[in-house]
Amino acid sequence: MKIIKAKDYTEMSRKAANIISAQVIMKPNCVLGLATGSSPLGIYTQLIDWYKKGDLDFSHTKSVNLDEYRGLSHDNEQSYYYFMNENFFKHINIAPANTYIPDGMEPDAAKACADHEAIIQELGGIDLQLLGLGNNGHIGFNEPGVAFEKETHCVNLTESTIQANSRFFKKIEDVPTQAYTMGIKTIMMAKKILIIVSGEGKANIVNKAFFGPVVPQVPASILQMHPDVTLVADAAALSKCPL
């Protein structure tokens, strides 16, 4: 695992964006595995800026997203489809037909998961997968204890996740209780993995995930076994690591 230290979130975002832009430049028709949430927002902002300056061309690039809430339509502001379009896709020249996000409105969970997995295979696999890191070591919606061998699957969100997400919805009843997510096996099949972490609040889990034992109770710990992983983290997030 390669570890790149940044002074703060802004520098972390720029360094991570450099890695993604290099992938796009070296292989214009690459397949990017993308993530949502607050962590990658700075990366998307930087990539948009470079695109607008003429430094990047996404016209041949394809993307596959990690996850999506089950039951949220594309026009729901809390759906990951909406997030990706508002924060990245509509600002660059990637073809909408080349962006793939699990279908949250597919009522058949098994079909939704199988379809997403099939898309990844048809594209020839993911060249670079972007990941964030949860406070409990989760990646995607793969919570502690999830078997490492799982492919794309439907998960029941934990009560703590539902409560944390409730701030984005008008009432608790509106918060999704399930999501479709790439499994650990799917993530590990990516040719390269880029994981980003910032903030002192993540320091303990960074140390546990990347310097502790590989166990299902810390899902991200499996990344230690991948042949090409780059961790880009700010000084605060790395403050408890034996570097």
Rank of each mutant, 00 (worst) to 15 (best):
C154D: 07
L238P: 10
T186G: 03
A16N: 07
S79V: 13
L231M: 09
N93G: 12
D67W: 01
F83E: 02
A22R: 15
H138G: 06
A97Q: 15
P107V: 08
I101K: 05
V214G: 00
I19A: 12
V31N: 05
L194H: 10
E200I: 11
T45L: 04
L123C: 10
L32F: 12
E77N: 14
K185M: 03
G199W: 10
G201D: 11
H138E: 05
A237Y: 07
G54F: 02
V197F: 04
C241W: 00
I184Q: 00
F148K: 01
K111C: 04
T152C: 13
K5H: 10
F148T: 01
E200M: 05
G145V: 02
N142F: 06
M1F: 14
A6P: 07
N142V: 04
K208W: 03
S221H: 06
V64N: 06
G37Y: 12
A237W: 07
L66D: 07
I25V: 15
M189W: 00
P107S: 12
V214S: 02
S239V: 01
S59V: 13
S38M: 11
I20T: 09
K90T: 15
K90S: 15
K170V: 10
L131Y: 01
L194W: 09
I48V: 15
V229Q: 09
M189N: 12
S39P: 08
T61H: 09
V155Y: 01
D127T: 07
K202H: 09
H226I: 01
F148R: 01
H153C: 04
N142H: 06
T186Y: 00
G37M: 06
D228A: 15
I43H: 10
N156L: 07
F88R: 12
D115V: 03
L47W: 09
I162V: 15
I4S: 08
E77L: 14
V155I: 11
I139Q: 05
G201H: 08
K2M: 12
G125E: 08
L194M: 09
Y81N: 11
Q46D: 14
A236Y: 05
P176Y: 08
G201M: 03
H91N: 14
D57G: 11
T177L: 12
P227A: 12
